[in-house]
Design a protein around this nucleic acid. Sequence first.
RNA 1: GCCACCGUAGCUCAGUGGUAGAGCACUCCCUUGGUAAGGGAGAGGUCAAGGGUUCAAAUCCCUUUGGUGGCUCCA
Length: 735
Amino acid sequence: MPTITLPDGSTKSFDGPVTALAVAQSIGPKLAAAALGCKVDGELRDLSTLLDRDCSLAIITERTRDKQPDKDALFLMRHTAAHIMAEAIQDVLGKEIQLAYGPPTDTGFFYDMFVPAGKSISSDHFAAIDARMAAIIKENRPITRYELPAGEGLAKLKAEGNKYKLDNAERALGLPPTQYKGAKSDAEPKAAASNANARLSFYATGEAGKNWEDLCRGPHVPSTGRVGAAKVMSLASSYWHGDENSDRLMRVYGTAFASQVELDSHLTQLEEARKRDHRVVGKALRLFHIDDQVGQGLILWTPNGSVLRQQLADFIGEELRKQGYHQVFTPHIGRLELYKTSGHFPYYKDSQYPPIIEREALEQLMAQGCGCAEMMNRVEGVSARLAASLNERTGREVIAADRVRPDEELLDGYMLKPMNCPHHIKIFASQPHSYRDLPVRLAEFGTVYRWEQSGELNGMTRVRGFTQDDAHLFCTEEQVPAEIVGCLSLVKTILTTLKMNDYRVRVGLRDPDGAKYTGTAENWDRAEKACRDAARSMGVPFTEAPGEAAFYGPKIDFMIKDVIGREWQLGTVQVDYNLPIRFDLSYIGPDNKPHRPVMIHRAPFGSFERFCGVLIEHFAGAFPAWLAPEQVRVLPISEKTNDYAVSVVDALKAKGLRATVDLGGDRIQAKVKEAADMKVPYMAVVGPRDAENNAVSVRARGIQKDLGAMPLAAFVDAIAREVATRGAEPLQING
RNA sequence: GCCACCGUAGCUCAGUGGUAGAGCACUCCCUUGGUAAGGGAGAGGUCAAGGGUUCAAAUCCCUUUGGUGGCUCCA
């Protein structure tokens, strides 16, 4: 006699078990007709779910009360669409395509499948797959769920010969995988393994035993027709369970919406996003260039982009001076021993460029007949002296005995720096410090190099060489909270000035069971509390992420959403107990004894490259005047006013403004269009009328008309003020 | 790294085995025009690089190189 509680708090009682659909029908036929699925005690389920005990129930329909697409409804539709696409692909390309894993995602769904040698799926097949999908949707076949006892289900899958599905089932049942010995087992054997009642569920797209079916946890919409519109989007490769040592699969992406109109508008939105893409805008506005011959992932800052970067650097430089930072400069390379001490080498060698070895040393090795393997051993080796002191300081074996080599065998070299901290530490350590000196804040726009996999590279947002607006703060334990707050307020100032308000803050904390962390539990507790308190004081949404801390300390990351909805980690603040130990840093305390300082790493922008990439998309290239590479373009009506136009540009330049003049033979309409295409914030149109009155006719970006004439001197002053205040006092025109 | 697609003029792109194309940008000429493209002419390419097949290759095949999308959220 189940009692069902509905979202409005009302209850309904039934004599015996009922399906969610029956409950919907008892509320109203329209609701039942619109229903796609349900939520039982908050869990998304099929409409056919049998409710046999008291529970809360919400019926999922295409739209929420305010007519917005319902997220759960989309999830259900896309899950079903994944099945429909898989069926369509097998229809088009053959049953030899083995299905592996096909879940919904935030923007659609994908299906990973094994494509046997000799077969391949390419975008040429998309039209056929789309057509087949549309047909299946039109057939409006019911989705049928059935369950088998675990043993029977496994036997069925074994008979079908799909090892991926078998593996999935074993994992779902909590059994040890028999199919993938080498694959990492993310699932701990669950209690379910011993549960004799464990069952596997299957979904047929139509009639069980007759139509296409798939091992699937569900849930799904009640019939294929309830998927409004679906489309294959793209292809990619993936690994089984994300494990690169496991099988390589083909991933087919698709998306589905409640209606064709919504699908179309999604596609249009993607198109719009592409127009804002920093790579597209960057090329059109000539902001940066990446050259094959220079190298992948290496940004060449062209004059226009350099203006952007310089303005950001100046902006942050001012803030740093206000906050008592010291500017430093350090080289782009450093000796390997430095990074052996810091721990960067060779532990992160997969993400670093290989070491630079001096030519003489190389020639000597060659003369000795030394092979590559031996050379790497000598490069990675550590002297007994360094190993002993590092192991002692850190209190554990950070340098294993087998890495220790006799001094005469060690081969030193240089490394492109992957981080700035070791250099800054050496500046700090170059002289003794009293507690009265602290905190010491060393800032540098430091360029670092990291070897990212080629497939990870992306325009300016994922690169191999980048310049961080980096700083390292050396302070006492007690000063940590105040310093973190200072760092966060800096980030907030920057983001607010740039009107980048769509971000969240993530506080990375240590794992509860973490044994891998450096530093004492008390220090960690204090630092984590400081991070949490500081994040809270910002007044922006923040989440705590246990396990996201670095091994050397907790951190605070700023995650910024770009126009395509991707999140980028930009600014970061990290507390570090490890490097002060490894480098044996100290300051003299009031007790006249040496104490260990704490380090804080922070980079408000992250890197200029990524930040500018995101900034370009944020503004779609239409930068505020203070950032714009070209702030004013002067447009003479005809060559008769060229001389006056030049004098206007000179007046603007005299105030330090970035102004150009278009002396070409085009008509004014063409000149206006060109300046608008380049997203110049202000145009100063000048003709005989203006020349006579020593005035300019102003046109602002985004406003499709002439804003009228204003005296030249007033215009120059107004623009200069807008730029100097970074947009806080914009040009006012009576228009 | 891996899978799919792609690389043709400065930019955006046509060109499926038979003499390398268009629009924009550029240079010059005409036009001297008051707010999102006035008209004409010209110049510009080792078709990413290398190799192969062919009487003939931008086009077909192989290799290299670069770019784009993607590489999980228990079935």
